[in-house]
Simulated scan of single mutants.
Amino acid sequence: MSIAQPNPFRAIALKIASVLLFVLMATLIKAASDEVPPGQTVFFRSLCAMPVILGWLIWQGKFPSGLRTANPLGHLWRGLIGSTAMGLSFAGLAILPLSEVKAIQYAMPLFVVVLAALMLGERVRAVRLTAVGMGMVGVLIILWPRLTSFTNGEVDPQLAFGALIVLTGSLCAAFAQIFVRRLVETEETAAIVFWFSVTATLLSLLTLPFGWQVPSATALACLVGSGLLGGLGQILLTSAYRFGDASIIAPFEYASMLFAIAIGYAVFGEVPTLVMLIGASIVIASGVLIILREHYLKIQRGKGRQHVTKYG
């Protein structure tokens, strides 16, 4: 298949559409969370995404060739940590407002910067370290009203627990991203997406002894819908990066906060607090700073290669 021509407007549109689908997916999961435990939610989310992904592979002409893997153990490890991240995130959705969960999850790219330096040997300069520090301050501002419930009892301790498990899930998601960075060295994107769905589906079955429930028709529709939306969202996200550079597309991830606030208010009657919005704004600013820094470094590396080609 021919390489897609760059089309920034299409890339941005696909990215925003994928962000909206992922927020809608989280909305359906939150709606079903009163009836089913997180492990069962992970099962439906992963299982119901597979037909969408397989259909996409067939349409792209990459089935079954796109599913070949040279690193099955790498997929297993990525599936294990990614499934844990997903389960913690879904557990948090059952406790916290939708917009607050999204705000805390913005810590994930910050964790990736730190882990990439520790585990992959990537060089982290002062600008990115400053951005990470600024982002962590924003995360602490978001978490502070929840964490104080452990000491003064003014807030339900369950909310503090919810905030901590979402933050832990974000850390697990960052580890999963490190595994993905290693997998892309030998694996096709299609294989990474598909085998994650397979491993997450199988691993979620281990939670069967912990109280799976027979869902109502409404909850079942939400669970199936979350998988379909998640699979479609992944396809749109993957397609977005075929038409534009990550530096152009990545900042639009933060549109999820606008969607989460609007949907959370319309569906669940959730009103974000001023403290949460301030903290989220700081985290978003730090994330954008990291993205801009990466874009600048990419340009500089490109100029360096051109110089070597011309004069080397």
Rank of each mutant, 00 (worst) to 15 (best):
T309F: 04
T207W: 09
A160C: 09
P72D: 07
S256E: 14
G138F: 09
S256I: 13
W212M: 08
P38I: 05
A176I: 00
M1Y: 12
G269I: 08
L93W: 08
G264D: 10
Q105R: 11
Q177P: 00
V127W: 00
T218L: 10
L47K: 08
L206R: 09
E188H: 11
A85W: 02
L202F: 00
A176Q: 02
V214K: 10
W77F: 08
L274W: 14
G66S: 05
I263K: 10
L277H: 09
P145W: 01
L205H: 03
V180P: 02
T69C: 08
C222P: 11
Y106E: 07
F194G: 10
M257F: 13
I282Y: 01
G87P: 09
C172H: 03
G66K: 00
I53H: 03
A91G: 14
A85V: 09
L208F: 13
A240V: 08
L147W: 07
M50A: 11
A255K: 09
S89Q: 06
V214I: 14
P215K: 06
T189H: 01
F90W: 07
G135D: 13
C222K: 02
T201I: 03
F44D: 11
F90H: 06
I29W: 05
C172A: 15
L223E: 12
A103I: 06
A221M: 11
I284N: 11
A219V: 04
Y311E: 13
G231N: 09
V155T: 14
R123D: 10
I165K: 01
T199G: 03
L120Y: 10
V184F: 00
G231V: 12
F268L: 04
M86T: 14
G74V: 01
I291T: 15
L140F: 15
